[in-house]
Design a protein around this nucleic acid. Structure first.
Length: 362
DNA sequence: TCTGGGGTCCTAGGACCC
DNA sequence: TCTGGGGTCCTAGGACCC
């Protein structure tokens, strides 16, 4: 079985350049407001030459390249391009798994996987005028890392048996699942490459638990996941907002919160889904972030019910720490297709019999 | 120069049940 | 009166990904 990971190059920026061809050649940054609290979502390759990277604050990006053009993300346009693109690629392979707005895994045909990969890259270039990179390997994690190896526009093939050797010299941070925190912990014990990580003792404290074991295997290029095995159903819906200025006024907070609850309810309704647990996320000016959740008796898609639960959670949290908020988020989890959970179809009947209100005193 | 928005998964403790 | 182990649900926080 040969797996490809396909990754669009600077996708958001590439779509914007199709919408604004006059910007071609100029450094382009897609992200939040450089005058406010925005961060970079994607920088064009021209902008990357100035050291601009994803997740950097937009203000810093502008400092590095004052002449760059800054655009706010137009997510609905990117989603539309993404849908068209993957609808076109999917029929070209036996098994397909979208892994994000701009990336996917495919199973390639066994006879000539490299030619197959080239055909797909060509198709994307000709039909969508988009550049993409591919990584080809027997293991998902290796395909993923390989697709990043020769960007933009490359195809990197890692033959069976050479997975560990391919990964070994790379920075540990390149391994999906190793973020800033884990990288720091690894550095402290003298580990900086994937090869060193692969050579670590299995019972090392940093490799404890389920996740550690998975990391250790992946560092050796071993990955049992198959294409198409990931969960396809959404398990949560949320919206959040970092305010331009920290918000302390309760009335304003309520207004923003009500809007957010409305948006969440709308998205539930659109999908015909109901949620049982309401979550709020609050970030204080010092960046301390807390979450509070409440599970309802019945699943709902009602904005008022969601807001009522959220408002209670927010109120309780603010009684503990009454400070302005930098961010407020409202979300739901525990999604189902039905308003009523029917684990026990007779439950309603039994309850109605067993607990009539006038018998509570007994 | 402070750090977005939309998600997923893991861990861990407590409640509660068998 | 003391005590166990497993399973599930709920909550909170943290790490990570694009």
């Amino acid at each position: 079985m040969v797996i490809a990971h396909i990754d669009l190059d600077a996708f958001f920026a590439a779509v914007e350049l199709h919408h604004h061809p006059e910007l071609r050649g100029q450094p382009l940054v897609v992200g939040g407001d450089p005058n406010g609290r925005g961060v970079v979502a994607t920088a064009s390759y021209a902008a990357r030459e100035f050291g601009i990277r994803s997740a950097m604050s937009s203000a810093e990006a502008r400092r590095r390249c004052p002449d760059a053009v800054f655009l706010r993300p137009n997510m609905s346009a990117y989603r539309e391009w993404s849908t068209r693109l993957w609808d076109m690629v999917e029929p070209e392979c036996e098994v397909f798994e979208q892994a994000g707005i701009d990336e996917a895994y495919l199973e390639l045909n066994d006879e000539d996987p490299l030619e197959h990969a080239q055909q797909i890259q060509q198709l994307v270039r000709e039909k969508m005028r988009l550049s993409c990179s591919l990584g080809v390997s027997a293991a998902k994690v290796v395909a993923k890392i390989a697709s990043d190896f020769d960007k933009p526009g490359g195809i990197t093939y890692v033959p069976p048996g050479e997975e560990a050797a391919f990964l070994a010299p790379m920075a540990a941070r390149k391994l999906p699942g190793v973020g800033p925190r884990t990288e720091e912990r690894l550095t402290k014990v003298g580990i900086s490459t994937i090869g060193q990580l692969a050579a670590m003792d299995d019972d090392h404290p940093l490799l404890r638990g389920k996740w550690g074991a998975v990391m250790a295997l992946r560092a050796r290029g071993i990955d049992k996941r198959t294409v198409g095995s990931e969960r396809a159903e959404r398990i949560s819906i949320s919206t959040e907002r970092t305010f331009e200025e920290d918000l302390s006024d309760r009335a304003q907070l309520s207004e923003r919160g009500r809007e957010m609850a409305g948006r969440v309810a709308e998205r539930l309704t659109e999908k015909g889904r109901y949620a049982r647990t309401v979550t709020v996320k609050m970030r204080y000016p010092d960046f301390t972030t807390i979450t509070r959740a409440q599970t309802l008796n019945h699943a709902t898609d009602d904005a008022i019910i969601i807001w009522r639960a959220a408002a209670m959670l927010i109120g309780a949290a603010l009684r503990v720490r009454n400070e302005p908020l930098r961010l407020l988020g409202i979300g739901v989890t525990g999604l189902s297709d039905q308003r009523q959970l029917t684990l026990f179809p007779l439950e309603g009947l039994i309850q109605a019999k067993a607990s009539p209100k006038h018998e509570v005193a007994s």
